[in-house]
Write a protein that binds this DNA or RNA. Structure first.
Length: 447
RNA sequence: GUGGCUAUAGCUCAGUCGGCUAGAGCGCCAGAUUGUGGCUCUGGAGGUCAAGGGUUCGAGCCCCUUUAGCCACCCCA
């Protein structure tokens, strides 16, 4: 007996079984459909890039999380850790050919060598969409609309898109003379929900060198509550002295009215001044989407506006706005909320196998069903009918088409609803039209 | 990367003070029931107690290392 190799996967890397994979693919297909319906075009880029491209100006953190090595030709390379840096490089290389504005979506795997935690893995998928080459406010509104439609199409009703504009925060920081330490201040603000106002004030004093009074004013502003209009009104005097802050308020007001006119329900979009997003490259609108029933899992769709996407790679200035759907987080949330479908197979119609003499008939039957758009599966061997039906039911197949000698003799077959156990007899004449409509009827009924 | 907790059957877990051949529920397979699943009954398979090393007459239990998972910090471009 030879020594077997222990089957195992690397830390932070996972296998996906059919049940989860079906859900993943369903969400990816939904996202794709939504992106395309807004006119975003698909692109892809290599998983492996030159190290210098990925490192960019990124600091120590990037360096620590990056999977890097030398390829067989001795080149320093790394695995992409997000889809934004590849987009920047891509835009610098191709934007003249593509022209602006350019709208793209990119659904792909990224890798980060960070420590794992629930919902945080070393290999995961991002679904990004961006509109680059425009400063227009319509793109901001559309980004929120896409996020809204994404969640809705995936099947969520209870979620809130928290929106803010960095100009508002920057305006206040400017008037307080804290503009230089914006990154540290914003990082502290990001933790507000987690650690509370007092400790955020503390952190701002320590890391950003703010005075206690300044820190308190910042916290006071980001903690404003009320309807969107009320918050806007309360903000006005707070940023009053700053031109930037006023511009931010202007754009937020504009955004509300656009979203309102687009028919987005008021309660789904909320002005939240505490939304800063840790990254220092966001310059305008920022958004984070929380599931009302699973807020603790964090944002499942977030992004924002930036002034200059590709400055590291080209002189051409490319402003834009985009966001990213957190596929793995979303699936983790759906799992916990019991929203993951239980099906373990894409099969919709099951055909038991009675005897080899009719195998040809089964293949023909399955082909007719497939032509009608139904995924049909034939059991691979002739065994007890009960066992075959049990297999089908366990996999979550909802319809069985039962046809043995008796049925073929009379030109009929049984259509069995595997959820209820009911079964009806239909004719196989006219390309099994009756069978198809009965199967479709059962599949259309609530599962 | 730092610190803490954890790892026993496919899943969820029990396993006393270190003591015989490691258990339960669920799931799985088979039969009861040769053309109709989910219920019931009967039987069965399945374990290097995460891996490796150490202490001991004796280790699932104690110690060390490794691997993996969870939590906090960090970070989330």
């Amino acid at each position: 007996m030879t020594d077997r190799i222990q089957p195992r996967t690397l830390k932070g890397f996972r296998d996906y079984l059919p049940r989860v994979m079906l859900a993943r693919e369903h969400i990816i297909e939904t996202a794709r459909r939504v992106f395309r319906s807004f006119g975003f075009s698909p692109i892809d880029t290599p998983a492996l890039e030159y190290l210098e491209i990925l490192l960019g100006k990124g600091g120590l953190e990037t360096d620590k999380q990056l999977y890097r090595f030398q390829d067989h030709g001795g080149r320093d390379v790394g695995l992409r850790f997000d889809l934004t840096v590849p987009l920047a490089r891509f835009a610098a290389q191709h934007i003249n050919e593509l022209g602006t504005p350019f709208k793209r979506y990119h659904i792909a795997t990224v890798w980060r060598g960070e420590n794992t935690q629930a919902g945080r893995y070393r290999e995961f998928m991002q679904c990004d969409f961006d509109t680059i080459g425009t400063q227009g406010a319509a793109a901001d509104a559309e980004t929120v609309l896409v996020a809204h439609e994404l969640l809705r199409a995936i099947g969520f009703e209870r979620f809130t898109i928290h929106v803010n504009n960095r100009l508002v925060l920057n305006g206040l920081l400017e008037s307080l003379g804290l503009a230089e330490q914006a990154t540290q201040v914003l990082r502290a603000i990001d933790k507000l929900a987690k650690i509370g106002a007092d400790r955020v004030v503390e952190e701002m004093c320590e890391t950003a060198g703010a005075s206690a009074d300044e820190a308190r004013r910042v916290v006071e502003m980001v903690e404003l509550t009320g309807t969107n209009d009320e918050v806007l009104t309360k903000l006005r005097p707070l940023v009053g002295s700053s031109q930037r802050g006023l511009e931010g308020l202007e754009r937020l007001a504009e955004l509300w009215s656009a979203l309102h006119n687009a028919g987005v329900p008021e309660q789904r979009v909320k002005l939240d001044v505490s939304i800063a997003r840790g990254l220092d490259y966001y310059t305008g609108t920022v958004l984070e989407t929380l599931l009302d029933d699973k807020r603790e899992i964090g944002s499942v769709c977030s992004g924002g506006r930036y002034d200059n996407l590709a400055e590291l790679y080209t002189k051409q200035q490319l402003p834009g706005i985009g966001a990213s759907l957190g596929l793995d987080r979303l699936i983790a949330a759906m799992e916990e909320l019991g929203l993951l479908p239980t099906a373990q197979t894409p099969s919709q119609v099951f055909i038991p196998y009675f005897d080899a003499a009719h195998l040809g008939n089964y293949f023909q039957l399955a082909a007719v069903l497939r032509t009608a758009g139904l995924a049909a599966e034939i059991y691979p061997e002739s065994t007890k009918l009960g066992k075959q039906l049990q297999y089908a039911a366990r996999k979550g197949i909802r319809v069985a088409v039962i046809a043995g000698q008796r049925e073929f003799d009379s030109g009929e077959c049984q259509v069995k609803n595997l959820s209820t156990g009911d079964s009806t007899t239909v004719s196989l004449a006219e390309n099994a039209a009756e069978l198809i409509s009965e199967a479709q009827r059962i599949l259309a009924s609530t599962s």
